[in-house]
Amino acid sequence: MAFFSKLKNSLKGVREKWSGGISKLFSAKNFDADFWDNLEEQLIAGDTGLDFAEETIEFLKDEAKSKKLKTPAELKNIFVEKITGELNSVNGMGKSFELNKTPLILLMIGVNGSGKTTSAGKLATMYKNQGKKVIMAASDTFRAAAVEQLKIWGERSGVRVIAQGQGSDPAAVAFDAWKAAESSKADVLIVDTAGRLHDKHNLMEELKKIHRVLSREAGPERLETVLVLDSVLGQNSVAQAETFNNIIPVSSIILTKYDNTSKGGVVISIARKLRVPVRYIGLGEGAEDLNNFAPSEFANALMETEINP
């Protein structure tokens, strides 16, 4: 176990070096190799991915050189602006869904445990509080008690839930719900689907079917496909998002479980690659814990990781 103790010691070293997080980092005296290495590690620690980290470092090095900056402190704003700018270049970033054409369908998709049902419940509560007419569809007919979970959310928020039994056809549930939303002139229809790992072919086909049915019935302009993404997830979620996007076009992202420790840095890569806006962030299990995503806050938070192992 000598290696472990060695590891622990070196981790301790890292902790002492890092206790001040990014503000301390940018207060370094000059641009030495340590500064750049540390900055890169900070980005990696935020799950932004190695490619993005390396690219950002290159960019900042160029900036420092061309603008003849002397201290890292002068670079801090450039850094935050770069990330904010990149995110804001995506249409709809941090904005609410547009309710131009109603009923608007929010089709919630994502891997297991990302927080789809909870996000569906929060969105329902939000729209209900805005005085909108909301219907939810329990198209997660696979996971045990998923229908019950959504029904409880429906009771809490006073929203009608369209459901059939466990194991029924999710596309049929979605179809029924659309008919109900249409005839009752609802503003929003939220369709909760089963979690699926993106490499499961059959489940992805099932998702395609739900999307096809809704798109045909309601028209693509009324359909928002919302990818629900857990902010503690790592590099695999980029592959995840891309696979989902290849199956059915993802049009929005909700970042869940976004507390002060998880950074959700992967959304940068995903938003850049798919050009899809992150609209909301979810925090906690309370019905009101849903906020609009704020790119500048996100960029700052990314740099405030306290790297204490």
Partner: peptide
């Protein structure tokens, strides 16, 4: 532990 977890895994497990 979710095998898809990112860099936050160590901190939370700790």
């Amino acid at each position: 532990v979710d095998s898809m977890m990112g860099q936050e895994a160590v901190n939370s497990a700790k």
